[in-house]
């Protein structure tokens, strides 16, 4: 059953909805977080092996490395998601600090009311 894939894509669509239709900067930023979390979930799901174990060699597995390799899940998406999470934290931090400034300047978090730039 591809339940994981479907749920991950639902999260992506939900994030997209927040990002495009919400009128509050904080909610938009949350939408961004949900969107990327959906992608992370999808990536992790891609590396799942039915009935697999974590990609850590432990205990008696040291004696049976080929057996370990035949049962562990994919380590690559986990590494990618690790990298990607940090990147998204960075974006969120920057976005929130900009939101603080926007609020100081405009006294609102509604992006459609920030209309200095036109043309």
């Amino acid at each position: 059953m591809d339940f994981n894939y479907v749920i991950a894509m639902l999260l992506v669509a939900l994030g997209l909805y927040c990002l495009l239709l919400k009128r509050n900067l904080i909610k938009i930023i949350i939408g961004l977080a949900v969107l990327t979390d959906g992608i992370h979930l999808f990536l992790i799901s891609l590396g799942y092996r039915a009935g697999g174990t974590a990609a850590i060699v432990s205990g008696e597995m040291f004696l049976d490395l080929p057996g370990f390799a035949a049962h562990a899940v994919d380590p690559i998406p986990q590494a990618l998601v690790l990298t990607s999470i940090v990147i998204n934290i960075c974006i969120l931090a920057l976005a929130l600090s900009l939101a603080i400034y926007a609020y100081r300047h405009y006294k609102t978090l509604n992006p459609s009311k920030m209309r200095r730039l036109r043309g």
Binding site: I28, I91, L94, A95, L98, A102, H105, P111, L117
Partner: peptide, 11 residues
């Protein structure tokens, strides 16, 4: 304007 431009760009 720079905060507004940056927020639009960032999102």
């Amino acid at each position: 304007i720079s905060i507004e431009g940056a927020i639009k760009y960032l999102i």
